[in-house]
């Protein structure tokens, strides 16, 4: 059990997709201007990641090495299209807010990267723990990032007014430029924190 927990924990910090591996940045930069969008994007990506890691770890023995990447993409596309229709049918508000970023999950390198690095080499059970860990790791950074951007950009958090009517919105934080600024500072701070914790322990 400890082994599985270690795999799960990996995604939260040590190999966090966003601030350690620096992958999956396309949705990270694009949709994190409100907390609700960031959280929904994390969950949608997570669903695709978990489903495709399960399927790929199950059928890895049948996929010839030469066509493994196209095979992974086909499987990922299937789950992304499912997510797109599912959200459109049952959560139309979220589907409207995320719009074209849902189809773009296909090209999120976090998902393809985990298939290649993990699901295609490990047992299904290990793959599930990896996928869930990566999902939680991806989602918490997205939520933190969007909380910072929404707070400075709109003065709100998840739509609730925090800074009051007197606050002048910083439009830059909502625009893509704000995503780069926030992500850069955040990655810097988290890595500094990581180094400090690491040196205290060692």
């Amino acid at each position: 059990m400890a082994e599985y927990f270690a795999i799960f924990k990996n995604g939260l910090w040590n190999e966090n997709p966003i601030f350690k591996l620096i992958i999956g940045l396309c949705p990270t930069l694009a949709v994190t201007n409100t907390v609700v969008n960031g959280f929904a994007m994390g969950l949608a990506t997570g669903f695709v990641l978990i489903s495709s890691e399960i399927v790929i770890s199950l059928i890895k023995k049948f996929i010839p090495n030469d066509v493994r990447i196209p095979s992974f993409i086909l499987i990922i596309v299937t789950f992304v299209t499912f997510t797109d229709y599912f959200l459109g049918a049952f959560f139309p508000d979220i589907a409207d807010a995320l719009a074209l970023f849902i189809p773009l999950i296909v090209v999120n390198c976090l998902i393809l990267g985990r298939q290649e690095a993990f699901a295609s080499r490990n047992s299904t059970r290990r793959a599930i723990f990896d996928a869930v860990g990566m999902t939680v790791g991806f989602t918490w950074v997205l939520v933190l990032l969007s909380a910072i951007r929404e707070l400075f950009g709109f003065g709100t958090l998840a739509g609730i007014d925090i800074l009051g009517a007197g606050y002048t919105d910083m439009i830059i934080m909502i625009l893509p430029g704000g995503a780069f600024l926030t992500l850069g500072v955040l990655v810097g701070v988290l890595n500094l924190l990581d180094r400090k914790v690491g040196s205290d322990n060692g």
Partner: peptide, 22 residues
């Protein structure tokens, strides 16, 4: 990964089956 089954037919069948099931 099935390393030894990389004949072209095998590649086509794999992708076709995955695509069709999807």
């Amino acid at each position: 990964m099935a390393e030894k089954n990389n004949s072209i037919g095998r590649l086509i069948i794999t992708l076709t089956v995955i695509g069709a099931l999807g």
